[in-house]
């Protein structure tokens, strides 16, 4: 049902998205059969394609060229994909979106080479765009993403984290790439500087909300809905926003400690998830997500009324309500 909702959100831009999807497949047609299979395996596992759609919609505010938009969108989605392949190595994850991860289907080494290959294809795609500012922005974003992941490992299994630590981490992990998706879409279409700034901030706030909802869903969804074990963030030693709200509860703390030690039994995992779901942590985290969404909507409120603006608003609303 939700997947149908997201498809309907994209309906007006389906033709261009289909074109980008084809370009994505084309871009990973590797001469190496294993890399080709691994890349297509990941590509066909799907995803919301929120980065490409943000590029498309932001580019609508300038002189839209599908060719340029496609190069940027392909690049951003490939960067996202490459980071997922490497993240699965780091987290030792066997399942993603209900399918085996590249590292589980092949092994870590193949996942490393596949991720690096996909990353190189991302740069090749955006390398067709001769706008230095676009490259400088993307390079900066990529380094910030890495920096965020390095900090995440550094803070792994660290119970005494703050709200600010969490917000900084999700900014780098998710919000910056969504912000850059909007900014790059607007940049390559030559939109006004002020429009570029507003769209960039929209992407940033929407991205913050998107990640908070993702972190909530990691707790409230079933294993089947997630395509991986619910509570994976905790099992991997990552403190997310709902956990920040509940971590000092004396009933919850022992679960947290055991999750971080890797000694949590399956039954305890279920008990822990039930406990969080029945606490007010989820609601409190949702309130923060809604605040970010409102900021995102405020940013674009002054932009010209056009179908792309409506679509951005609908996507922002979807982000807040999604349950997968």
């Amino acid at each position: 049902m939700e997947k149908l909702q997201v498809l309907s959100l994209y309906a007006d831009f389906r033709k261009d998205l289909n074109y980008i999807e084809k370009q994505l497949e084309q871009s990973v047609q590797s001469a190496s059969p294993i890399i080709r299979q691994a890349s297509l395996h990941l590509l066909r596992a799907g995803g919301k394609r929120i980065r490409p759609i943000f590029v498309i919609l932001a580019a609508e505010f300038g002189r839209y060229s599908l060719e340029d938009v496609s190069k940027v969108a392909v690049s951003l989605e490939l960067i996202h994909m490459a980071s997922l392949v490497h993240d699965d190595v780091i987290d030792d994850s066997d399942m993603r979106r209900g399918l085996k991860t590249v590292k589980a289907k092949w092994d870590n080494r193949i996942a490393m080479y596949t991720g690096d290959y996909i990353f190189s294809r991302a740069l090749l795609s955006i390398g067709e765009i001769e706008i230095p500012a676009a490259h400088q922005l993307l390079a900066k974003t990529m380094l910030e993403i890495c920096h965020g992941e390095i900090i995440q490992i550094d803070q792994q299994r660290e119970i005494n984290q703050t709200f600010r630590d969490y917000l900084r981490r999700i900014k780098r992990k998710t919000a910056l790439l969504l912000s850059s998706s909007c900014e790059l879409g607007a940049l390559v279409s030559g939109a006004d500087a002020e429009v570029v700034r507003k769209l960039s901030r929209f992407g940033y706030y929407a991205g913050m909300s998107f990640q908070i909802i993702d972190d909530i869903l990691d707790i409230t969804s079933t294993d089947q809905e997630l395509g991986k074990p619910a509570g994976s963030d905790l099992l991997n030693g990552h403190i997310t926003l709902p956990i920040l709200y509940i971590k000092d509860d004396p009933i919850f703390t022992p679960y947290l400690v055991r999750a971080f030690e890797g000694t949590l039994t399956e039954l305890e995992r279920e008990e822990m998830l039930t406990f969080i779901r029945h606490s007010d942590a989820i609601q409190k985290a949702t309130v923060v997500s809604d605040l970010y969404l409102q900021k995102a909507l405020d940013e674009i409120s002054s932009l010209p009324n056009m179908p792309a603006k409506k679509a951005l608003e609908r996507i922002a609303e979807f982000i807040g309500q999604r349950n997968y």
Partner: peptide, 16 residues
Amino acid sequence: VLSGDYFSGVHYKILA
């Protein structure tokens, strides 16, 4: 793993 990604990003930043 992340250091390799980071170094890769640095190469792009320099050329950009």
